[in-house]
Amino acid sequence: MNPSPAPSFAPAAPGLPRYTRIAGTGSMLPVRRLSNADLAAELAQRGVETSDDWIIERTGIRARHFVDADTHASDLAVGAARHAIEAAGCQPADIDLIILATSTPDMVFPSTACIVQNKLGIVGCPAFDVQAVCSGFVYALTMADSLIRTGTARRALVIGAEVFSRILDFNDRGTCVLFGDGAGAVVLEASDTPGILATDLHADGRHVGILCVPGTVSGGQVLGDPLLKMDGQAVFKLAVGVLEQSARATLEKAGRQESDIDWLIPHQANIRIMQGTAKRLKLSLDKLVVTVDQHGNTSAASIPLALDTAVRSGRIQRGDTLMLEGVGGGFTWGAVLLDY
Rank of each mutant, 00 (worst) to 15 (best):
I55N: 03
C90R: 12
L251F: 04
S246C: 06
G184H: 10
D286N: 15
D52V: 00
A278Q: 11
G182T: 06
R256P: 05
E42A: 09
L264I: 03
Y139P: 08
P11I: 03
R21I: 07
S165C: 05
L141C: 12
F109M: 15
A81L: 08
I98M: 03
L168T: 00
G184M: 07
E49V: 13
A87C: 13
G89M: 14
A10C: 10
L178S: 09
H202I: 08
E86N: 05
L188H: 05
G334P: 08
R248N: 11
R58C: 01
D231N: 15
S146Y: 08
H295I: 14
V177S: 00
G241L: 07
Q221Y: 10
D52L: 01
I85F: 10
A127K: 01
S27I: 06
I22F: 00
V177G: 00
C212G: 06
S4T: 12
R149M: 13
R256K: 15
F179W: 14
T112L: 00
L97E: 05
S259N: 15
A63R: 03
G326P: 08
A300R: 06
A156V: 08
G328L: 13
A310I: 00
L120R: 00
G15A: 04
D75V: 03
Q45T: 08
T199K: 08
V235T: 00
T321D: 07
T152Q: 15
H65S: 08
K279A: 13
L29I: 11
A81F: 05
D339R: 14
A12R: 15
G124A: 02
Q131K: 14
L227Q: 11
P17G: 08
N36T: 03
A140W: 11
L120P: 05
L281N: 01
V240A: 03
A41E: 11
T71K: 12
L283W: 00
A10V: 14
A37T: 15
G319F: 06
G215M: 03
A41Q: 10
